[in-house]
């Protein structure tokens, strides 16, 4: 079984044209394998989120190739009109803020995408309860997000990202709004998910303390993506 979860070839992203042309990414090449937790780092404005959104089939690249699993989804153009279906079925998103749907309760937030994918309600709810239990918030299943703490909401958001059993999780600064203790807890959780569920995770972070928990670091340098090893004091879960 192929290990490749994400593969990017000669990926280019420009914004604007003529005098106002902004070159964000120039020929990115990298691969992320299943079960890997990879940190994506770069200074602010270097294009981390843009890169994440291109892999997530949200932002259209200028050129290049993107493979999700074995499927080539972008080859100088989207190869499918249903990028949203790809997102719904293959990708889980985690954001800096939890971004839960405020008018849905916890379990509805978690089951929304699976139910949209056609998973029967009971089955989706059973799996959602497993996830919530895994994150120790099963007792909050029927609470609204406004009734939960920031940390609890972020765990619900992670559960939501996992609910569609994705091959890839794209996490955009998931620990930015959390204190260091909770941040470590969340990243350890992501590492465990990557290992347990064979999911490839790319995590954008500014927090160097989180890097030891990752398998690899992708750094945007001079508009290119360069792979680095993690620091030596890597903590094994």
């Amino acid at each position: 079984m192929a290990k490749q979860a994400i593969k990017v070839e000669n990926l280019v992203k420009h914004f604007g044209k003529g005098d106002s042309l902004v070159r964000v990414i120039e020929g990115a090449n990298f691969q992320v394998d299943k079960g890997e937790l990879v940190a994506l780092i770069a200074p602010s404005g270097a294009g981390k989120t843009t890169l994440l959104m291109m892999i997530g089939c949200v932002e259209e690249p200028t050129s290049g190739k993107i493979y999700l699993g074995d499927e080539l989804v972008y080859d100088n153009r989207w190869l499918t009109k249903e990028q949203r279906k790809i997102r719904r079925e293959k990708i889980g998103f985690i954001f800096q803020a939890h971004y839960l749907i405020p008018f849905l309760n916890v379990i509805e937030n978690v089951t929304l995408v699976p139910q949209t994918n056609g998973v029967p309600q009971k089955e989706a709810e059973a799996f959602a309860m497993e996830l919530l239990d895994y994150f120790d918030i099963a007792d909050k299943a029927h609470n609204m997000s406004s009734e939960l703490s920031g940390g609890q909401n972020q765990r619900v958001a992670i559960a939501r990202a996992l609910a569609n059993k994705p091959q890839i999780i794209l996490a955009d600064e998931p620990t930015a709004a959390l204190d260091s203790e909770r941040s470590v807890s969340v990243v350890k959780m992501l590492k465990k998910i990557a290992m347990d569920q064979d999911v490839a995770i790319i995590m954008v972070t500014h927090d160097e303390d989180m890097l030891p928990f990752c398998d690899r670091i992708l750094k945007i340098e001079n508009k290119k993506v360069v792979s680095h090893d993690v620091p030596k004091n890597k903590d094994v879960i």
Partner: peptide
């Protein structure tokens, strides 16, 4: 709009 953008981002179809 924020919720709608999130829903679109996580793959909820426009029709829904």
């Amino acid at each position: 709009m924020k919720e709608i953008s999130i829903m679109k981002l996580i793959g909820i179809p426009n029709s829904m």
